[in-house]
Design a binder for these strands. Sequence first.
DNA 1: CGAATAAAGTAAATACATTGACATATATTC
DNA 2: GAATATATGTCAATGTATTTACTTTATTCG
Lengths: 167, 167
Amino acid sequence: MKKDAARNNHKVDGVALGLSNRLFFRLYQCANMMHKTGTKALEPHGVTTQQWAILGALTRPAFEHGVAVGDLAAYLLVSRQNLAGVLSRLEAQGHIVRTVAESDNRSRLIKLTDAGRTLWAEEMRPRIDDYYAAALDGFSTDDRIHAIHYLDKLLRNLAALDPEPEH
Amino acid sequence: MKKDAARNNHKVDGVALGLSNRLFFRLYQCANMMHKTGTKALEPHGVTTQQWAILGALTRPAFEHGVAVGDLAAYLLVSRQNLAGVLSRLEAQGHIVRTVAESDNRSRLIKLTDAGRTLWAEEMRPRIDDYYAAALDGFSTDDRIHAIHYLDKLLRNLAALDPEPEH
DNA sequence: CGAATAAAGTAAATACATTGACATATATTC
DNA sequence: GAATATATGTCAATGTATTTACTTTATTCG
């Protein structure tokens, strides 16, 4: 069947594809599959991978006492307009609060609620650990370090390509 | 300024983040930046990175004479509903055609138009090569091979996590 | 052959993510 | 201090991606 030929060539399509092309194609596929499987892993809590990234960021010591939306957007490398939307959903679910900054009437300070902190620590954390274990099965510590190294390197190049200054 | 502290810790946020978490966070950031910078690189032609992936796939020898939407979706690892939307835009731009398969009244066969093939070869290809060169600056051939290896490995794990059978 | 199964297209709801544009508030500079 | 510049939130448009659900057409199996 033609179907099988087209659907089972993950192993074959590297031969003529070119290294650079293949690298970016795999990055594209991996990111999609990460969102798909990651969101499914946290489905019982109605949290997506992007929301998970935000909640995780908010547990960082530096952001423990609240963080401005602009700073959070800069940390995640997403636009503030996009972040605002996800934050609205997290706020509606009661996981975070937006408070007006004292020294700046424009700015809102994002903070984890107690419920959000509990959700993260008690519910999400164990599932996330299981997810990492499954997704990185067969990856040694060195493998992870090397993979991160390449992604870091790529990210620096992409950031340099982005006209957006880092202010 | 607090701003600078929050916005310049790409190098610092690895220390306490955990290897697995950091790997997925970088994957998330890289994918977003790839779409952002890649789409900008091809902006003169109004083509996004996803459309670029599809046009590239259609130039594969195996798909040269047309490919079914289901097979193309399986190759790209996206849902056929998503693919249908992108194909509509590509069709509206005249880059591809959808013809009804002779042996199956349900199925549509996707083919590159002459205009689409020319756009790919004459216009997009050079810009894509420039983009790859910039995004992978400092990557040796071995670096690329190793990076692909890790992404392949990760993708296999993610695919195994996905309930979707490969039929 | 006829019934169950599978595959294809489509529609709709939801969520991410980008850009451009705008109003308002804060900072900088002269 | 006033003019300029920058930061912030928001609105709107567009594109990508998922899931669920439904209809129609093929295929398979009994």
